[in-house]
Amino acid sequence: MSRWGIAGIGMIFAIGVWLVAAPFVTGQQPDSATWTTATRNDVIVGAALALLGFTGFFTVLAGHVADMYAKGPQPPAQR
């Protein structure tokens, strides 16, 4: 169950990266020109989403590891 949640957070990070790159990839922002309002908005929101996904991913990972420490050593899995 948590794997799907972690995957969702990873997708949020990926969408943030896409949003930062989108104005330049789609050609709506010409090179060596002043950034348009749309470009500024996309870059800011994209960076915020990427930062959110990055922070969220590692916070979830830290919480998972903290739970493992709290449970203590587990017996080895039967093969």
Binding site: S2, G5, I6, G8, I9, I12, V45, A48, L49, L52, G53, T55, G56, T59, V60, L61, A62, G63, H64, A66, D67
Partner: peptide
């Protein structure tokens, strides 16, 4: 508990951005 809370907060903030 931390991971669930972090996941919920992250997803809710992303919903606002969307």
């Amino acid at each position: 508990m931390t991971r669930y809370l972090a996941g919920l907060i992250t997803a809710t903030a992303a919903l606002g951005a969307g």
